[in-house]
Every structure is written in C-alpha cells, then in structure tokens.
Design a protein around this nucleic acid. Sequence first.
RNA 1: GCGGGAGUCGCCCAGCCUGGUCAAAGGCGUAGGGCUUAGGACCCUAUCUCUUAGGAGUUCGUGGGUUCAAAUCCCACCUCCCGCACCA
Length: 959
Amino acid sequence: MKINWKEIEAKWRTKWSENKDFETDPNEKQKKFITVAYPYPNSPQHIGHGRTYTLADVHARFYRMLGFNVLFPMGFHYTGTPILGMAKRVEANDKEIINNLKNLYGVPEDTIKEFVEPIKIASYFHQEIKAGMIEMGYSIDWRREFTTIDPMYAKFIEWQIKILKEKKLIIQGSHPVGWCPKDQNPVSQHDTLGDVEPDFTEYILIKFKFENYIIPTATLRPETIFGVVNLWVNPEIIYKKITVNNEKWIVSKECAYKMEFLDKKITYEGEIKGSELIGKTVTVPHRNESIVILPANFVESETGTGVVMSVPSHAPFDYQALIDLKKSQMEPELSKKVNAITPISIIVTEGYGENPAKEAVEKFKIVDQNDPKLEEATKEVYSKEFYEGKLKSNTEQFAGIKVAFAKDTIKEWLIKNKHADILLELTNTPVRCRCGAECVVKVLNNQWFLNYGDMNWKEKATKCFDSMNILPQEIRTEFNYVIGWLRERACARQHGLGTKLPWDKDWIVESLSDSVIYMAYYTISKFINNKTIVSDNLTSEFFDYIFLDKGDLEKISSITKISNNIITEIKKEFQYFYPVDSRHSGRDLVPNHLTFFVLNHVAIFPESNWPREIVVNGSVLMNGSKMSKSMGNIIPLRKAIADYGADPIRLAIIISAELLQDADFNMESVGGIQNKIESLFDQCFSLKAEKSDVLEAEDIWIKSKTQKMISQVTIAVEKMRLREALHDILFGFESDLSWYMKRVTAKNRNNISSIIHEVNSIRIAMLSPFAPHIAEEMWEKLGHSGMVSKSAWPIFSQINVDPISIQSEEYLKGVIEDITKILKVTKMTPQKITIYTADLFKFKVYHFILEKITKGQTNMGIIMKELMANPDTEEIKKNPDFVQKTIKDILSEPTEIRNTKIESKKFNEKNFLANELAELGRKEFSVEIQVFSESDSEIYDPKEKARHARPFKPAILIE
RNA sequence: GCGGGAGUCGCCCAGCCUGGUCAAAGGCGUAGGGCUUAGGACCCUAUCUCUUAGGAGUUCGUGGGUUCAAAUCCCACCUCCCGCACCA
C-alpha cells in the first residue's frame, strides 16, 4: 500500500505539538540536555544540514524512550558578516545573488526587495529553517528559541566577554587582515567579488645599502642572503624615493602604497628610473660586500618591492636572467662585471648538484626569463630545498641546519640586526571588494584576541576533553591536536551583526566567540520568551548568580527588580539542566567551534558544569560529489520533505553512512527506504496481539533472535552508531524472519500472528526515534494505545534467550544447506533423502575434543594420543580421519556456539531432526526425509553413508 | 611539512576496536524465474574459480611478520582524501 506521508506526518506532528510533548521543564526524573550547533540563517537548509539535526533528534528521542527528561532546544545565529555582505549585494542589485535567491532558494520577489536590510534576510531564512525543522519532526522545545541579536542575548554575551577579560584571557595586539581601502573595512571571502578568500604571505625585506638609501628586496627565502650575487631591477620601472620611519628607501610605487597600510609612516620624496640604477653597486647587509645592480624584465613592480635579489645558484629565474643578460648587448664595463659573476651555492640537497637552479632550468627546457615554466621550476627547487636541503659551510653560524628550520632563525637574526623588515602581500591578487576597490593587507592595531595560546587554559581544556565522551572515538586525537596548535584568535570585528564589546563600542564580538556557551542561555530564554523577565533589568550580577552561584539573592533581586522566587526558579532551571550532556555538530566545526566550546566552558564554569559529550558527524555528498551552488546539486530540505516525506529522508540520511563518514545521498536510496517501510506498514494491519498457544521450536528461536536484536540495536544507538542500529532493525532482522516464515509455512501454521505482532511491536518501537511519524502510525495500527514516542525502549532480557534453540536452528539450517549444496553439485532430482546422525561414541569423542580446543589445545597429534590413552575413547584410532575433521569443524565455529555446545551435551540430534526436518524437507525438496542414528539396528543404509556421520554434521544420502 | 582518515569480491559500502560464525552483510548492477495487458514496482534464485556428494583453490592496496588460525594484530612501503585559522 502506498503511504500518504504528508498526511500521516501532519497528523502526528499536530498531536505532539498539542500534547506539548517536547516542552521540557525540570522534574524529578534524570535529565539529558542535548544540543546542536544552531544554524546561520543566510540560506534555506539543505539535506546536508539535515544530517546533524536528525542525528541529534534521534539521540534525544532515544533517551526520552529510555525514561530521561530530555531537553532539545534550538536558537538562531544571526551574528556575522556574510548576511551583511548579502544585503549589500542585494542593494547593489547584484544579478548573481538575486538570481540565486529567486531560483535556487525560491524567495518571493517582494521579499527579496526587503533584503537590503540584513535582519530581514536573517529572519526570513530563520523562519524557513524553523519550518523545515518542524516538518522533519525534530523534537525541539520551541519555547526556548532565540536569536543572537536579541537584546537579552547581548547582555549575556557582554557578561561572558567581561568574565574572559577579567580572567585576562582577552588581550590586545596587532593583526594583519584583508582590507578594503575604500570601505575602510576588513574583507573576508564573503565580501569579495567571486568569493575569493584574501590570502597573504609574509615576505622578508632584505635591506641593501645604496649610497644613503636602502634598497629592500622581498624574499620568501631569507637564507639565500648568503648566496646573493647581484640585484635585479626592471629598467622600465620608475621607482619611488620614500622615507619609511626615518629611513630613506627606494621601492616601486605599488610597494610604497602597500606599506602605507602596514603600520609604517611613509612620505614621498622623489623618483628614480630603474635604468638609472643599472650598473650601480649596493652593499649586502652584514657582509659589507658590494654587488652590482643589473637589469631584468621578469621583475614586476607589483610584486614585493620591485627589486629582486639574485641567487642564481638556487633560483631558476635569477639563473636564467643572468644567461639572458650575458647573451645581450651591454656596455663593455657592465659586461665585465656580469662576466665576473659566479653563482654561490649555499644549500646541499640530495638529488641536486652544485647548482639546482641550473639543473631545473635545463630539466624544464626554459627558453628565457619570460618562460611561464619558470614558475614551476622555481616551485620544485624551492620545495625540495626547503624540506630536504641543508645549509652549507659558507653560511656561517647556520651551517649544517636544515633549511626548514633555518628560515625562521635567519629571519629573526636579520630583523634583530636591522638588516631586514617584513612586508605582507596578497598572494592571489587582484582581490576585489564587492565595492570594486582592490584590496590590500592591513595591519590592524588594537585588535582584541582570545588568548587560546595560554598554556594553563589549554591544560584545563585538555583535562575536560579527557573526561568527556567523544563520539566517534577516532576524532579525539584531532581535538588534542587542535588544542595544541591553537594561538591567539581575534574575537571582535568592526562590522557585521552581533554584540558590541562592552568596553570598546567600535568592536563587535565575532561569531565564533559569541556562540560558545549559549547552551546555558537556553535555560533562561524560556523566561524571556514568556515575559517573566525583561532585558532592561539584567546585570552581570544576575548572570553571576544564575550561572556561577555567586552573589546574594536579596541584592540581585533589588538590582534586577525580579522577585526572589523567579530568580530562584531560573537558577534551579539552570542547575537542573546543566551541564550539556551531548553536543552535536558536523566535523567541520572540530578545529574551531567545538574546541572553543570546551575552552570557554572550562574558562567560565566550574568543573561540575563542564560538557560531558561531543558527537561529530561527517558531511553529506550528493550522488558522490560535494553539494555546491555552482554544481546545482543542492537539495533544499523542505523540497525533499514535500517530495518524499520526512521519515524517508531521515532514514536515508542515517542509513547511508556511519557517523564520521561522508554520507552519499541519492534519491534512489530514498525510494528503497520508502518501499521497505511500506511493506512493514502493510504487515501492521493484519497482526493481532492475541494470546499464543504452546510455543514451537521456531517460536522460541525467533523470540531469542529478537532479544539479540534488541541488545545489538541498543548498544549501537548508545554509541551513536545509528546506521548499524537502523540496519539491524530494518534489514538485518529480515533474514531471521524469512527463515522463521519458511519454518512456519512448512508446518502450515496459522497461529503466528501474536508472535509477529510482538516482534514487530519491538521493531517499531526501536524504529520510532529514527522515523517518528510513521512509527506512530504503525504503532496505532498494531492496536497499541498511547504513543510509541512515549513508550519504553525495549529492554533486552536474557531469560527470553534460549541458546539451545539458537543452536538447533543453526543446525537445521546447516543440514538444509548441505542437502542444497549436494543437489546443486550433482544436479540430481531427489526421490528420497536419508539422514544419519552420529552415534554416542562419536559424541563422547567430540566433546572430549571440544573441551581440549576450548582450553587451547588444537594439535591433532596430541589430542589423538590423549584419546587413545583413555579406554573409553581408545577405539577412535580406527578412525583418525574423524578426529581431524572434527577439529576442523570446531575451529571453524564461533566461540559462542562452542560454549553452547559444551553446555548442551544432551542435545538429541536424531529426535530434533525427526521432529523438525520432515515438513521442511517436503516443502523445500518435495521428498520424504528419513532420519536414523548410525547405531540404529534397523537402519536403511544401502550406500554405507551412515559411518560418515559426525556430531552436528549428519551423513546424508540422496537418491 | 604537520595532523587526521581511507584503500574490501563490476560499482557503492559494512566487517577491523574485541582474530575463528568470512568467499566476506546490505544496496546497485547483471542473468534467470514469478507477478503484470505492458512498463514500473514488488517477490524468488543466481552472481570469484573449479567441482556429478555436502568439497577444493585463489581473494580484502603491496611486501614481510606473529598465530593452530589474519580482511581483522604488528612492521615497512605505495596510492588517495581532508584540516592547518580570524571564516560561518
């Protein structure tokens, strides 16, 4: 039967909401506080977002069925710059974004017009996302919803940031950022044309002395100062004479402009043409050696200072330029100088000789200095030398050091001796701001940082991580690593939505810093939303009292004008729900949000309120590739729900991958899930919970198997191995059920409705956290009163597991399988089948061997000797083949089955087969099956097969 | 470079933690059959190689090792993917 997902889902959604099932207040039960990283509302959510929330919802629903008082709240993170950027683009009538909003996100045109206001964007997508979450059936307590620009939230963040400052964890310093000179604003990826991230590198400026000027050259390789033999300038460039912090420099115009933003005082003094510098000499700093300035056209005014130091031994450009120059027409005097130049080799690298640059130029078949392949050659030499090279003896105190280590040391040494300076430069130029201006690097002074580099802080966070449950376990090392390399992090910016720094109103608390302890806020947001408290009254004393148990109630009450009772109630609410029992998020938040979450908790809260668990999930791929706007493979969640139903989407997301794996989502799998659920749904109509009569062998077996399933599924869900759990519920159990049906049909039984009813009730209860709507419907159809979401999670009961029945059904399956195999190989049509079970003597030997093996003895020779030493089993020497095969039989079995066999010595193969095999045989092979023991006196054994019988491996004769 | 992860029977993907139920689940694909007016959907059977008696052989990136026994544990190597920040 086709399921009307929409109708069923709406029906149960309404019931949950009417019953206020997910509105959680403190009570006498044990609590679980489950949170997910709240969404940033700059677009509708897609299937990928759905994964994290779905996992958390399953988690919440599971704990609810286990009897916990579960709080699962949600907020919306308005803080940040991307929305601001979007608003600007809408205002500028940017075609791309308007097209995306209209066609990709389906925003009505009238609404788009309002999007010039950033808050309109946020609140539009906020409602869109919320609607999707409700449609997905997430069991969220919406009374606690908030946004991060609510006035009350601002108070909360002010409190948080103030505490951090008091603890001296917020410090001030300077920091380079991408910068738009026109907007006077930092730029990030969202603010640039084409969404490029401004990427910059640090060049070392080596200060060469030229008369009373300094000619700086920019390099990434300060160590090569020991190999410099000349300088390159472009004769066509007009250089600027400038004063930089009381020094006179000669650099390109572009370089001078860049330096204006780098916290340097620049005044312009004059100009000099590149050609005028040719042939002049400069002094190498520290060595006081003179080298000549030569012309080269590969030198660009936009890069570095517009002057390049030449290290022909290690830099392919320099080597090639020197060759080009030697070939060209020169004044005799210059020519003499050029010919006197010999490269100085300063790095030894395995695989290269004296002149790596020369080798690379030859290898890449470089034509001249304008050859584009030179970039590649440079890259190769550089990376090889950097990671593998060592400095030679002509590098003074640095001799013998690996280049990778020497680089920073030499940089420090040069700067300390005033031989060098720093130049920051964009590497992916030109980066243009959305306003059209070309961006630069700016050093921001007075920037505020969270000092995540603080060793004590790190230690505390590590302690917290050590005591936390991290799921899956594999991700733990990654957290430890992140804690290790974390340094200062800017925690405020100058534009965007968010809370202003209380002590410096020019700055707004940055989005990854105002989202670290907000879980605590959920415990008070309920009182804000129902107007019990208002923001005007709130002071940091209030938060101190609620969250840190500091201060005096009377005093707080008089300051805030909130009654003692209410303050006490709020405090109790917090104390009941805190700490966070489980925090869910995607793995992309591991190196930032999740780690900051822990760091800030340990900084602000006492140990008793440190978080308990983190659950991390992988991302979602669409048909094997990343979802992206440009690929056009983003499926909006609400559209998917409308097309397929929420439950099939939930199931498809969960079944497609284990927690940390990337889930490859495709619509075919959703169809498969729908069919699976439909067939389960159909069964529910015909089943009745009537009393069952006497249980037959297969009934006991399927009940045992059901218990095993309960145990497996429960353990899997506890570890958030939801794929495995769901698989066991839906598919894994299917093969057991079909064996059961085979047995039942063979016997022509029609009294199994109650058994199946019982089994399916258990399955549907366990399915309920995964597919909550349809599970309710099935539960109702099965005739249960009450809701499945409020029923108890099935509990494993050892009493209902009958090991002997598991063993005997396995045995029966084995016999059927053997017969099938024989028929397959021989291709015969059976007329008659005869089974011979082993005699008592063989059983005695079998158990002897079984016990030996259990004790670890697997050596055939030793076992044989021991058997012969015992008068009871001595006779086995006539049948050594039996011993060998028996050892093999036993070794190929799981330990569990071996133990069962030890415990069930009395198992009577012949009786069991005689009772259970005949009907099955008739059904499966359409023949009569006769069963003998090989020791029976009136045995029918024309082919003398009986003697081959072994315990649990009867002999078979097919005619 | 540093750190993390992965390589499984045509494809996707389980299993590895805790060695034996593993020629290895499930899905897709393919072949045959059933159902259907037909198509789809669904159900059944088969799907490494050999085999006229339930068997044997060769497989889990490559090469070693430990063990009675290795996809699973240990060592080395090869290949691929992800993160390395001021951005949500």
